[in-house]
Design a binder for these strands. Structure first.
Lengths: 211, 211
DNA sequence: ATAAAAATTAAATGCCCGTTTAAGATAAAA
DNA sequence: TTTTATCTTAAACGGGCATTTAATTTTTAT
């Protein structure tokens, strides 16, 4: 007998719930019971439909990636690389600032960076590497043709890590550091800052070599 | 009757072991059993000497801070702020790159940032805030007198987060990103990069305002 | 309607962990 | 040496968790 109609729906609910919970708490802190509760299912549902928590995690990644519109980035192809960098940073930060399922993939990604599980190393290449190449290419274009590989990688690390932190840090800690509540306007100013700060950083690295 | 001589020694061993394990794994991932094993003690030893894991964690922070020589930073007072920034970044990175107990405090600090426990919020002010002020002052000096508060804070966040990541990321992931094994020389080049990248970032923020 | 597969459920299982307990061993003070 | 407090130890406890089980209910196909 084939899969039942209500079964397909429950599986879908579980996957959506898993995306939410994993994106909010990360793999370890997310509990199977919590995921099931949000999906209105019994604790055994995850194991019935997915086998185990690890497999559900991997499927949640793929699901979140499906909903994730990375196209937005390649749209910017005609622009100057400096402007592309600005858009990239804003895109990263806006993604995990947003509430709905839109930012889930970015949150999953950054959660995995903060507390690696090693469960999605195969997906990593497939999903992350293309996105990574976009940033690397932008950096290369800004730096010029003679940029060394290491210089580009160092700049990538600098940029990614400035953005990463905004997720992994507790909201209250960031508000403490900033001395004010986090408004959307403040987030936007911070994104602008990171873009400008990084652009100058890249150019300085390039100039330092040419001297 | 007063504390026994062997008891004092065992307590000392436990504290040293706790510093190691907490610095390596963070609060959650560190297990009491592991800490006791390294100290050559029974599992009950932590509770006997410290009451519970949370208290041990707080004491480990203070212990690690005691061994931490922050004086190195204030030595640099006569230097140009650009050079002070370079030293600050190198100091941060070298600290948690180093093997022994030297880097433990920095590792504890960054682990807490990555996965906050909220257990040391009182120590936070006492221990972190002075060190934070050093960096803020360096940034202010580089930016000039008319720097806005927000600009300085944004730059602080940019710099701290570039350094933070080197701890929270898995060694193998960083090696994957870099495409080569992490040698001390590479770490040093990366520290140089972050210092130069950030210096340019700060100056760009200052100049953008003055325009 | 009936049979078979699919899905749901509560309860149980087993693991890891921090913590407690209670008895025994050890060192210090008398 | 004897006493007393300090320390050590193995075992047990209890909570949280992922996972399994086995019985029951619900849907689907014949």
């Amino acid at each position: 007998m084939s899969q039942r109609k209500d079964g397909i729906e429950k599986r879908r609910l579980l996957l959506a719930s898993a995306c939410q919970v994993f994106a909010e708490k990360g793999y370890r802190a997310a509990s199977v019971a919590d995921i099931c509760r949000r999906a209105g299912a019994n604790v055994a549902a995850v194991n019935y439909y997915f086998g185990d928590k690890a497999t559900l995690y991997a499927e949640a990644w793929q699901e979140a990636y499906g909903k994730y519109v990375g196209a937005e980035l390649s749209e910017a192809e005609g622009l100057a690389p400096e402007e592309q960098l600005r858009l990239y940073v804003h895109f990263l930060i806006r993604n995990f600032t947003e509430q709905g399922s839109q930012g889930e993939f970015t949150r999953l990604y950054l959660m995995e960076l903060a507390n690696p599980t090693g469960l999605i190393s195969d997906l990593w290449h497939k999903l992350i590497e293309p996105r990574r190449q976009i940033l690397l290419n932008i950096i290369k274009k800004i730096m010029g043709a003679t940029s060394s590989n290491e210089e580009v990688l160092f700049c990538e690390i600098s940029i990614i890590n400035q953005c990463r932190s905004l997720l992994t840090i507790r909201r209250s800690d960031l508000e403490y550091l900033m001395g004010q509540p986090l408004s959307p306007a403040l987030i936007k100013r911070l994104a602008d800052h990171i873009a400008g700060f990084s652009l100058a950083g890249i150019k300085a690295v390039a100039e330092k070599r040419s001297r």
